[in-house]
Design a protein around this nucleic acid. Structure first.
Ligand SMILES: NC(=O)c1ccc[n+]([C@@H]2O[C@H](COP(=O)([O-])OP(=O)(O)OC[C@H]3O[C@@H](n4cnc5c(N)ncnc54)[C@H](O)[C@@H]3O)[C@@H](O)[C@H]2O)c1
Ligand SMILES: NC(=O)c1ccc[n+]([C@@H]2O[C@H](COP(=O)([O-])OP(=O)(O)OC[C@H]3O[C@@H](n4cnc5c(N)ncnc54)[C@H](O)[C@@H]3O)[C@@H](O)[C@H]2O)c1
Lengths: 231, 231
DNA sequence: ATGCAGTTGTGCACGTGTTCACAAAGCGGG
DNA sequence: CCCGCTTTGTGAACACGTGCACAACTGCAT
């Protein structure tokens, strides 16, 4: 039979949870667990079991009634759906405090996002080696992106330079951006942007902290991570 | 008239956007802008104008029809609502790559989240000074939390130690946790947890990147940052 | 005064996401 | 081979979030 090609669109909320399931499943596989129920996975992911089943049902009917899901197979399916069947090299712009921490972090490469390069505008930063990658000048950005076929860029510059960094990334050919600078980036249509803003996170905590007058009565919230990606 | 005390509950999605508005408004105030319309603010925040108005309406009716919102006043109101009228000292657990980057980052203190302390379990790490803060042993955690009245803790340990770090934070008296480790933390009811997971962000980008077969037709998505806080 | 241009605040309809509840289906034991 | 136990997959109801559209209101010009 022909491989199904009309990929169903997966709800954004589900896309944001699949990586969490994936990590848990990989961990379970490492512990020789071969099969897991939606209930079990839900427990480990801190979400509702029905949600797990519905999420997984977007991938296809890969469970076995009365039994559960085969861990290894699910891992494969989620990887495939998330596009993790091959590596996605990333380029980091800004070799400061944060950029260095990111470049020196092995977790990225391990998860299929090797650091193809890190660039900075400051000549003084160029040349030093972080996590096995040499810092290069930002003028080399396009060359790095094209030669290494990079489609994901990380912005780790000061806020004032973030838009410039994003512009350069887009011009160099990057189509997805992960932004750590606390600014709203303007990008052309079709470019995906996701933002990680620690100050915002803290301020949200502050809000709930401040309301902690009576008892903790807030909804369990389940840490979903729904944010818009892509434009 | 008595000051209104029955605080309306603000929708989570709105709470997540208020910090963004706040930052923009503070910036505008710095540029001598005294008044801004929902349209103008929406443009800068990259969202719909009606959404801005609805969000702000949860704070009260602080706009002037035909004119807009007074920037300074809005800043004050959002700060008040988010509980940013006073500082929230934070304690960082794990003085590794990331913990050091965080401790050395001034942006936190500037935004009202001074680093009250950073602790590690490794005796070798204890004693060094990062961003003006001396790394202390994790056994001092409770003392730091209580003497400095810390209610927010940051987990920056390896994944395997994250649950332990969270447990210690809770035992020490912290009621909100910002977790950088890629694990789902279990915490008692009433403790707020927010997670920042870079690998998840990259995997979400990967999903949309992979689907980029035809044209970029995905919804604009607007970067909201809605995640569950608190348990 | 009155009119007009501009902008807010919100009712309403719509779309998305969550959860319940249950029929359908697999499995193992007798 | 059938029965009862278990768990999936999903329809339907509900909750939540978004955006349109417009009445209500402000301030200014005449
Ligand atoms: N350090 C943290 O823990 C932390 C936490 C939260 C957010 N952030 C945000 O991350 C960003 C980076 O923070 P940081 O602490 O690494 O800052 P940093 O000042 O240490 O580093 C910024 C680097 O970017 C480089 N740069 C400046 N303009 C550039 C340009 N146009 N192109 C390329 N490179 C350029 C600078 O030379 C510098 O090396 C900031 O926006 C900050 O607000 C950092
Ligand atoms: N470095 C990054 O850029 C980055 C990016 C994304 C996610 N993360 C995550 O952030 C976390 C920290 O990363 P890192 O690169 O700083 O790791 P790291 O290994 O450099 O630092 C971890 C630190 O935690 C300390 N520690 C270990 N167990 C502890 C315990 N029980 N109590 C207190 N301290 C303990 C260690 O001594 C070490 O100093 C990890 O979970 C990692 O997955 C890091």
């Amino acid at each position: 039979m022909p491989v199904e090609r009309v990929r169903r669109r997966i709800p954004e909320a589900t896309v944001a949870r699949l990586p969490v399931y994936l990590r848990i499943l990989v961990e379970q596989a490492g512990e020789e667990v071969e099969c897991i129920s939606s209930e079990g996975l839900a427990e480990l992911a801190g979400v509702n079991a029905a949600k797990v089943r519905k999420d997984l049902s977007y991938l296809g009917s890969y469970g076995t009634r009365g039994v559960g899901y085969e861990v290894a197979f699910l891992v494969y399916q989620i990887r495939r759906e998330l596009g993790l069947t091959h590596d996605w090299p990333v380029v980091i712009v800004g070799a400061g405090n944060l950029g260095q921490a990111l470049a020196g972090y092995n977790g990225f490469g391990e998860r299929g996002f090797p650091v193809a390069g890190i660039v900075d505008i400051e000549p003084g930063k160029v040349g030093s080696v972080i996590g096995g990658v040499r810092v290069r000048h930002i003028d080399d950005l396009q060359q790095i992106v094209q030669s290494r076929r990079v489609s994901i860029g990380v912005v780790a510059t000061p806020p004032s330079a973030a838009q410039d960094a994003a512009d350069r990334l887009v011009r160099a050919g990057v189509t997805s951006i992960l932004n750590f600078a606390p600014v709203v980036l303007a990008v052309p249509r079709g470019i995906s942007v996701r933002k990680v803003d620690l100050a915002v996170e803290l301020q949200i905590l502050s809000y709930y902290e401040q309301r902690r007058v009576g008892v903790g009565l807030q909804a369990v919230g389940s840490n979903d991570s729904t944010r818009g990606a892509s434009a």
